[in-house]
C-alpha cells in the first residue's frame, strides 16, 4: 500500500515538475524555438573539432572582435590542450610559435618603464585578448548606447548556449509589416523580447525581440584557410563552436575525468555491496 501510494505521489509530482521546471516561462517575453544543430562536443563523448575551432577563431577575429571583447582569454589559451592551435610538438602553450605569432599581430597598451609614458607594444602569449574599446563607456558610446557584451562566457551565459548563438546569427529576419522597428535596432525572432507595444498589425505580436547588433555575417565575409565554403550557416556554426570552447576550455578533460570517476565509483559500489552482504549474511534483519 505504501509502495503504491508513494509511486503514484512521486509520479504525479515528477510529471508536474517536468512540465514546468524545464523552461520557466517569462511573463510576456517570447522567443522562437532555438534551431537544432549538431555539435561535435555534445554529449558525454563529445570532443571539439580543432579545424572547426580554427575557423571559428577566424570568424571571431575578422568579424566579431571589432566590437566584442573576450577579456577572460589570453593568447596562450589558443595553444592550450584542446584549443584551436594546440600542437603535440609544443605542449607548453607559452612556447608555442602559433600563439606567439598570433599574439604578435596585436598592439596592446603598456607603460614604458624608463619614462612612465603610456605606449603600445606587440602582445605576447601571456597577454589577454586585446579589447576593441578602452573601457565600457567607450564601448557604449561607439555603439549607440549599448555596449556589445564580452563573449568569453557567452556560450554559458544564455539559455541554449551555442544553439542560441547559432540561432541568433542565422536568424535575422525582415521585420513583418506592422512592426515598428526603433532606429539602431534589428528584429530577430530568436532574441527574447516583448514586441506587443511595437506591433500595429493584426493578431498577436511576432515572437522575438529587438537586438542592437546588425546582422554581422554575410556569405564569404571570412575566407577560411582550409577552403571550407563560408556560408552564413557555416560561419555561425564555427564561431558558436569556438565560443563554446572559449566558455569552457576544459570541457573535454571534464568529460574524460568523469568517465574514469564513474567507472571507479560503479566498481567501488559493487565491491562495497559485496562487502556489505558478506558482513550482514548472518544477521536476520
Amino acid at each position: 500500500m505504501l509502495r503504491k501510494t508513494t509511486f503514484i505521489a512521486a509520479s504525479v509530482g515528477l510529471v508536474l515538475a517536468a512540465m514546468g521546471l524545464g523552461a520557466p516561462a517569462m511573463a510576456a517575453t517570447t522567443q522562437a524555438e532555438l534551431k537544432s544543430v549538431n555539435w561535435s562536443f555534445e554529449g558525454p563523448f563529445g570532443k571539439f573539432n580543432q579545424e572547426q575551432l580554427q575557423r571559428g577563431y577566424k570568424v571571431y577575429h575578422d568579424v566579431c572582435s571589432a566590437c566584442h571583447s573576450m577579456n577572460l582569454l589570453s593568447y596562450r589559451n589558443l595553444a592550450d590542450k584542446g584549443g584551436p592551435f594546440y600542437s603535440d610538438k609544443y605542449p607548453n602553450p607559452n612556447e608555442s610559435p602559433y600563439a606567439k605569432a598570433i599574439a604578435m599581430d596585436f598592439m596592446v597598451p603598456d607603460i614604458d618603464t624608463d619614462t612612465g609614458d603610456a605606449i603600445t607594444r606587440p602582445a605576447t602569449p601571456s597577454d589577454h585578448f586585446k579589447a576593441p574599446f578602452a573601457n565600457e563607456y567607450a564601448a557604449k558610446a561607439a555603439n549607440g548606447g549599448s555596449a556589445p557584451p564580452d563573449l568569453s562566457l557567452m556560450a554559458k551565459a544564455r539559455e541554449g548556449g551555442p544553439r542560441y548563438i547559432y540561432s541568433i546569427l542565422t536568424g535575422f529576419a525582415d521585420a513583418p509589416a506592422g512592426l515598428m522597428v526603433p532606429p539602431g535596432k534589428y528584429y530577430n525572432p530568436y532574441f527574447p523580447g516583448d514586441l506587443t507595444s511595437f506591433w500595429n498589425g493584426p493578431g498577436k505580436a511576432p515572437t522575438g525581440g529587438f537586438i542592437s547588433m546588425p546582422p554581422p555575417l554575410t556569405p564569404d565575409r571570412v575566407t577560411f584557410d582550409d577552403g571550407t565554403k563560408a556560408t552564413v550557416a557555416e560561419e555561425a556554426w564555427d564561431v558558436a563552436a569556438f565560443l563554446a570552447w572559449a566558455a569552457e576550455p576544459h570541457q573535454e578533460e571534464r568529460k574524460q575525468t568523469g568517465f574514469a570517476v564513474l567507472i571507479y565509483l560503479l566498481l567501488f559500489s559493487g565491491v562495497l555491496y559485496a562487502s556489505y552482504r558478506t558482513i550482514w549474511r548472518k544477521i536476520s534483519h
Partner: peptide, 8 residues
C-alpha cells in the same frame, strides 16, 4: 559498510 555503500 552500509553507510559506505550508500555514500558510494
Amino acid at each position: 559498510v552500509k553507510d559506505g555503500f550508500a555514500m558510494s
